[in-house]
Nucleic acid binder design. Structure first.
Length: 829
RNA sequence: GCCCGAGUGGCGGAAUAGGUAGACGCGUUGGACUUAAAAUCCAAUGUCAGCAAUGACGUGCCGGUUCAAUUCCGGCCUCGGGUACCA
């Protein structure tokens, strides 16, 4: 083989330099990942290198990534991207002397497993175990530095025992209640569907039309925590978009309740508004079709049949239709009932319309057509009065909704004020005269917490004919899922568990008489709402985690995951943690210190990866063909970590080339450890740049900087061992196997994660000389190399002395000169 | 509709306390090595004009501030994400 000969001839090393390795004559120009990677994985995992040490004396650092759902299709490149950021940070932190906890587990309850089980007549337990085993294999083949001794599996009774325990605590504290609501139901499949499964009003499975069906639903009163969840965001370091999405989800608004007397009755219509300042412009009122006052005053209503028809119509409109028909507002005037505007004293008509939601505010509004788009549209359609109360718009064109500028008019006591002042004054007035009060509303709704599914945590409640709803005693947990063969969906839309008598029938914990279990299970969000706590003490049989371990590990220092989980999962888990804090079960109100989110990896066609598009990349194929390190490097080099980026096969090859280049320069490493002065500044800059970039999720530029350094190295005849080792350390969090191999080939015996992270000398970041740009009128005309920190005056005179610059200036007078130290000279003529 | 984010070469993307636009990688072209190919190495590569030195233009569009704008300001357009008749 000619390559071997070439390497032997080129190498400045003798065979005995390779201390622990093989003789130079066996060196090949491309590393063998199939040999190297499993070798180091085995040595790392066998020596428990990545285990977080409870009560360790080093400072702790807790890195958390969103644990996967172990699907049958194995790992996705998206998983790799999601984990690689904190993989790099975790390895770096270990080198910086931290006791790192970087755990992983499985969010294994869920519909795909259940559906697969039904279709193939295999128990979900069996499927889940198989999938978890496959995921474990793949995670290890990728060389992730997870602490595999702390695996949690949400479907393990020893885990969901505590999921049920937390549910009972919520129940005990009045945060669980039952209510009726409408759910998406597929009449063909006889199954209740989530919003995700019924998008566009069509069943995800069979394509038939989804109908709304009334159901009993268990709710968790997350709205009781709305304010705290909003406030808690101040203690969560995150990007703007992550914060704003949560704020919008919670949806706090401030305004007032106002009472409008119902004419000729003792009743009042309570409305919520964010614009009490526009009350003088309220020319009619709108109630949600379901509003209770309609029922109460049905006798006075003259057009009862019309009203009832509209109510029925509204009820049968699906979510989908309501959105589709959004533009076309409908409603019915309630004949026989009228309201009085408490400020103008005028009598105004009342309507019911489905653009007012019974679930938000008070289910009734004062309509101000002059200054609300929806009210404007409605008023136009039904020919209602439009009164201008804020000057600045053109009411023949549309509602004027600007609150920044505009002065109150036609508004009695608040005339002449701006919106902000008018709001304050009118709210005061309303309160003083018992006409209304300050109020806050949230868009967030209570969390519907039950599913009609088999493969989920049973809800630990019992129905007793005598005692009513009785919680299962804590000591009887877990309520285990029965290991039965058949768990087909029922025809009635009830949970499959309802068909299993040995599960349903039980005795009442209070009176010991025969009773029946709740047959619904919890949603998939349940298990993931507290898993970060279980990692701290994953095998504790008697508590979520021991207090002293919670105290030692504290909050999650850095949590990375998908943008799609920023609203629901993040808010749900923060809710549970805050609740557990309030009842003294955890030590921090907020569970996470910092949250980041990776961007999506798209297919090579720029579209979202999906089986139907056929653009899915199997990470395991790349690990096989080019190695885990190549995949790890490319996943980070692919683009801005926080942005969506398309996959590119050639990019993978480029990363492999980069790693091979580092491998191939090994024979040029000189045993002499003197620092190469020529590269001193570049090496220092690279240490600083790579470290900073890792911390800021700029992995693409970090790798670019290491490529630049490697390119410089490859120009040299010999590379100082010290310089080369610095590069290996910087690269080790990314290409962990290759760098480990080379590190040992240099004769080192430690693992790289046990080594110290390189430090740089701030004095040596600057070169001795620097290239200055000379501008004429702001355009680059010449360049000049000068010593660093040359005084401005000297710089200017040297610039003017340049031949080209003299030509450009000619005999024109110089109007102005600008000198920026170590950067440029600009001469204005 | 509203709220975020983003628009830069053939492609992924660099560079914003305003100061050399296009780092790094991919691709392409030419060359070296080879019987040949792969691999590797060297060189070129924003567009236009020119043999060249060089010049003009160029960061979604229009305008502004400045000696100097991808970066700041005003007004748009397009794409991606979130949310949705939330009063």
């Amino acid at each position: 083989m000619p390559e071997l000969r070439w390497y032997r001839e080129q190498s400045s090393l003798t065979d005995d330099f390779l201390l622990g390795g093989r003789p130079m004559s066996e060196f090949i120009p491309s590393f063998n990942h199939r040999e190297i990677e499993p070798k180091w994985q085995k040595r790392w995992y066998d020596s428990q290198l990545f285990s977080g040490e409870d009560f360790g004396h080093k400072p702790k650092y807790y890195t958390l990534v969103e644990y996967p759902y172990p699907s049958g299709s194995g790992m996705h490149v998206g998983h790799f991207r999601a984990y690689m950021s904190l993989e790099v940070i975790s390895r770096k932190r270990r080198m910086e002397g931290y006791n790192v906890l970087f755990p992983i587990g499985f969010d294994a309850f869920g519909l795909p497993t259940e559906n697969y089980a039904i279709k193939n007549k295999i128990h979900p337990r069996e499927i889940t175990d198989k999938n978890i085993a496959e995921f474990m294999k793949e995670l290890k083949a990728a060389g992730f530095s997870f602490d595999f001794s702390r695996i949690v599996d949400t479907t393990d009774p020893e885990y969901y025992k505590f999921t049920q325990w937390i549910f009972l605590k919520l129940y005990e504290h009045g945060l669980v209640y039952k209510s009726k609501t409408y759910v998406n139901f597929c009449p063909d499949c006889n199954v209740v569907l989530s919003n995700e499964e019924s998008q566009g009003g069509v069943c995800d499975r069979c394509g038939s039309s989804v109908v709304q069906k009334e159901k009993d639903v268990w709710f968790l009163k997350i709205t009781a925590y709305a304010e705290k969840l909003l406030e808690g965001l101040n203690d969560l370091e995150s990007s703007q978009r992550i914060r704003v999405e949560q704020e919008n989800w919670i949806g706090k608004s401030e305004g007032a309740y106002i009472f409008f007397p119902l004419k000729d009755t003792k009743d009042k219509i309570k409305v919520y508004t964010t614009r009490p300042d526009t009350i003088y412009g309220a020319t009619f009122m709108v109630l949600a079709p379901e509003h209770e006052l309609i029922k109460k005053h049905i006798k006075e209503i003259k057009n009862v049949q019309e009203i009832k028809n509209y109510q029925i119509e509204a009820k049968h409109k699906s979510e989908f239709e309501r959105i589709q028909l959004q533009k076309d507002k409908t409603g019915v005037r309630v004949e026989g009932l009228q309201a009085i505007n408490p400020l103008t004293g005028k009598t105004i008509p009342i309507f019911i319309a489905d653009y007012v939601m019974i679930t938000y505010g008070t289910g009734a509004i004062m309509a101000v057509p002059g200054h609300d788009d929806r009210d404007y549209e409605f008023a136009k359609k039904y020919g209602l009065d439009i009164v201008e109360v804020i000057a600045g718009g053109d009411l023949s064109e549309g509602a004027y909704t600007n609150t920044e500028s505009g002065i109150l008019v036609n508004s009695g006591i608040i005339n002449g004020l701006d919106v902000a002042r008018a709001k304050a004054k009118i709210t005061n007035y309303l309160e003083e005269n018992d006409l209304g009060e300050k109020a806050v509303q949230f868009k967030m709704k209570d969390w519907a917490f039950n599913r009609q599914r088999y493969w989920g945590e049973p809800i630990p409640l019992v129905y007793c004919r005598d005692c009513g709803i009785v919680p299962v005693p804590y000591e009887d947990l877990p309520v285990k899922l029965p290991m039965v063969k058949e768990f087909m969906p029922t025809e009635t839309g009830e949970s499959p568990l309802a068909n299993i008598p040995e599960f349903v029938n039980c005795t009442c914990p209070k009176c010991n008489k025969p009773a029946k279990r709740e047959t619904d299970t919890m949603p998939q969000w349940a298990g993931s709402s507290w898993y970060f706590l279980r990692y701290l003490d994953p095998h504790n049989p008697s508590a979520i985690a021991a207090k002293d371990k919670m105290e030692y590990w504290g909050k999650v220092d850095w949590y990375n995951g998908g943008m799609e989980h920023v609203t629901r999962h993040l808010i749900y888990s923060r809710f549970w943690n805050q609740f557990l804090y309030d009842i003294g079960e955890v030590l921090h109100r907020e569970p996470y210190s910092k949250r980041t989110a990776q961007g999506l990896i798209l297919g090579a066609d720029g579209e979202k990866m999906s089986k139907s598009r056929g653009n899915v990349i199997d990470p395991m194929e790349i690990i096989e063909s080019d190695g885990a390190d190549t995949l790890r490097t490319y996943i980070l080099f692919i683009g801005d970590y926080e942005m969506p980026t398309p996959w590119n096969e050639n990019g993978v090859r480029g990363c492999r080339r980069f790693l091979d280049k580092i491998w191939r320069m090994f024979p040029k490493v000189s045993a002499i450890t003197t620092i190469s002065s020529k590269l001193e500044s570049l090496v220092n800059k690279t240490i600083k740049g790579v470290g900073d970039d890792y911390e800021n999720l700029k992995f693409n530029t970090a790798i670019a900087k290491m490529m630049t350094l490697a390119n410089e190295f490859s120009q040299l005849d010999t590379i100082s061992k010290q310089d080369y080792e610095i590069l290996l350390k910087l690269l080790s969090p990314v290409a962990s196997h290759l760098t480990e191999e080379l590190w040992h080939m240099l004769g080192n015996e430690s693992f790289l994660v046990e080594e110290k992270w390189p430090s740089y000398d701030p004095e040596k970041l600057m070169e001795d000389t620097i290239e200055i740009v000379i501008n004429i009128n702001g355009k680059v005309r010449d360049k000049l190399v000068v010593p660093v920190d040359l005084p401005d005056s000297e710089l200017l005179s040297r610039a003017k002395a340049q031949e080209k610059i003299k030509e450009w200036i000619g005999d024109k007078p110089i109007k102005k000169t600008i000198v920026v130290k170590n950067k440029l000279v600009n001469i204005v003529i």
